[in-house]
Design a protein around this nucleic acid. Structure first.
Length: 558
RNA sequence: GCGCCUGUAGCUCAGUUGGAUAGAGCAACGGCCUUCUAAGCCGUGGGUCGCGCGUUCGAAUCGCGCCAGACGCACCA
């Protein structure tokens, strides 16, 4: 028997059956006519409570003016299906569905037959989603806070893609404005210092050692070539040299962290035309006024605390003006949803950008700003102090050097975005059972080892493994966990919650480890051995899919 | 003062479109290696879900008010 579908499809069928039954009862005047509540189907907290459960009877009790258990009875009498073993009414009115065991095995067989397609959901016919993340100023190295953004952002992109959403990732390069002038002035000061000149370091300059390195590299390459030219000219040259170098360093750091972008968007391309146009549109639709010589956006009309300057008294646009032009550009490019991942320290900025989008006539709800809470590093139980101002902070490159990309990514992703992250460096480094990354990778390596052993003894999965031989509680648990993957993908993507995948793959590894200690593969009857080999093979596939979303490697050996 | 996030076991955290006896890891304690990786498994103990009031058949989850911590309140980016 096959009901021909994935776990998600079975769920659909069951939900439809509930709805049909409810409508039938309505047509028979057993239920009063009216709106049906939304049908929610969930996996019960304990396996004794069945494969699926719905709270339909309790939800509709008030509207129907009926006892929930009576509603449940009426409903269950009208639900039939060859895939259904039995139905039970439990507790205050839960309806628990117990599926025939064949459904479990058929679903697993379907998953196996799909091959790598099981790692993805079908492409959804929705407008493209853009995810912009990190977008750190190219004025210095990335630090650990950016690391969280980088890991979370790239995992979110992978997740949305796996869940069938069309996605494009983007990095916004802040290569215009004051901070780039400060970068040039800082390099200039370091450059002159190298030639023994005493210069006042720029007030808002960058103090990091990387600036000294940049100056040193310039000298190594071009010597004193820039020493005797006019400062203005030298600054212009240094601005470009430093920017190019910083950008290359950024890309290198990110690539080493398994982070890659579809689009690198330069702020400069917005100046001056796009910025002017955006302001003109706002002027035309009456959302701009002049005061004290500056142009102000009437953002309070769209929920902001105060109005914001877009063009300064001196005629120079503010950062907000460029950001308005940038976000306008995003929507003009046709994205249906625009996701920004920002550090929580920028949360005050959300309201004004959304207000600006509303003022431009876009739906501000189509701009989703995900705020990442701050990261604290702990070493030896002590908080590692960080100071951005003095440039004395732990860089992403140093972190990767210390704990590795896999551990760093997993630790950044495993917490919800809203939670402040305590990053325990010692734990991330430890190659022990305390470290969740190793626990998961170990499961994968173990399975690979099993396959190596199986190959030696000549054991193969074969074309049609008898999956119904898998009846141990740990086997059933593992099958169910594998079959939960598509729904897990769906929910994680819908919630923009890559941490759900981190948790899922941990649970999957845990379920596998339990199975492994309970059931042998080599040394049991051949059909059972083949079925078990098929099961662990599929487990390995799903571990790979999930780790790939997280950007964490799946080693064959440990 | 205003805004935003957080507060769940000794520690780090899940669970928050309201559902069944609130979960996991670590730490503590007790078991399991002559057989596929013990970087593993099994078990035990551990909770006023920050506090109070409310909505509801039902609240960790929703509302209001407190308390505590973090972050932010620029013609900086």
């Amino acid at each position: 028997m096959s009901i021909g579908g994935s776990f998600l499809e079975i769920k659909e069928i069951l939900m439809q059956a509930i709805q049909d039954a409810a409508e039938k009862a309505m047509a028979e005047d057993v239920f009063p006519a009216g709106e049906l509540p939304e049908i929610v189907l969930e996996v019960p907290p304990k396996k004794e409570l069945g494969d699926f459960a719905t709270n339909f009877a309790m939800q509709s009790a008030r509207a129907f003016h009926m006892n929930p258990r009576k509603i449940a009875e009426v409903l269950t009498e009208r639900i039939h299906g060859s895939w259904l073993d039995h139905i039970q009414i439990a507790g205050p009115g839960f309806i628990n569905f117990y599926l025939k065991a064949d459904v479990l095995y058929d679903t697993l067989a379907q998953a196996m037959a799909q091959g790598s397609a099981y790692g993805k959901l079908p492409l959804k016919d929705v407008p493209k989603i853009q995810v912009e993340y990190v977008s750190a100023n190219p004025t210095g190295p990335l630090h650990v806070g950016h690391g969280r953004g980088a890991a979370t952002g790239s995992a979110l992109v992978n997740l949305l893609r796996a869940a069938g959403y069309p996605v494009e990732s983007e990095y916004y390069i802040n290569d215009a404005g004051n901070q780039i002038d400060n970068l040039a002035a800082s390099v200039n000061a370091r450059y002159l210092e190298k030639f023994g000149q005493t210069v006042a370091f720029p007030e808002n300059g960058y103090h990091g050692d990387d600036i000294i390195d940049t100056a040193a590299r310039i000298i190594r390459k071009d010597g004193d070539k820039y020493l005797h030219m006019e400062e203005k000219e030298r600054l212009t040259i240094f601005r470009e040299l430093a920017l190019k170098e910083k950008l290359a360093a950024l890309k290198e750091d990110l690539a080493a962290f398994n982070v890659h972008y579809d689009v690198w968007f330069s702020e400069r391309t917005l100046h001056p035309d796009a910025v002017r146009e955006a302001v003109e549109v706002l002027q035309k639709n009456g959302n701009i006024y002049e005061k004290d010589g500056a142009l102000w956006l009437k953002s309070t009309a769209y929920g902001d605390d105060k109005d914001r300057v877009v063009i300064r008294e001196n005629g120079v646009p503010t950062y907000l003006a460029a950001d308005i032009a940038y976000h306008r550009n995003k929507f003009e490019r046709g994205f249906g949803t625009v996701i920004n991942i920002w550090g929580a320290d920028h949360h005050g900025y959300v309201c004004r950008v959304k207000a600006a989008m509303a003022a431009l006539g876009y739906n501000p709800d189509h701009l989703k700003v995900l705020l990442l809470q701050m990261v604290s590093l702990y070493r030896g139980g002590e908080l590692v102090k960080m100071s951005k101002r003095t440039g004395d902070s732990v860089t992403l490159a140093e972190l990767i050097d210390e704990v590795g990309t896999d551990a760093a990514r997993y630790f950044f992703i495993m917490r919800s975005l809203d939670s402040q992250l305590d990053f325990d460096l010692d734990l991330a480094k430890s190659q022990s059972n305390e470290n969740p990354v190793y626990y998961i990778q170990y499961a994968h390596a173990r399975i690979c080892s099993i396959f190596r052993q199986a190959a030696e003894t000549g054991l193969e999965v074969g074309p049609v493994p008898q999956l119904s031989l898998l009846t141990d509680a740990t086997e059933i648990a593992l099958i169910k966990k594998i079959e939960a993957y598509p729904e897990e993908l769906e929910r994680a993507a819908a919630d923009y919650a890559p941490q759900r995948i981190a948790r899922y793959v941990y649970d999957l590894a845990s379920t596998f480890h339990s199975f492994y200690s309970q059931c042998r593969i080599m040394g049991v009857d051949q059909p059972l051995a083949a079925a078990r080999l098929a099961l662990v093979g599929e487990t390995r596939e799903v571990i790979r899919y999930a780790l790939a979303i997280l950007g964490v490697s799946a080693p064959d050996k440990m």
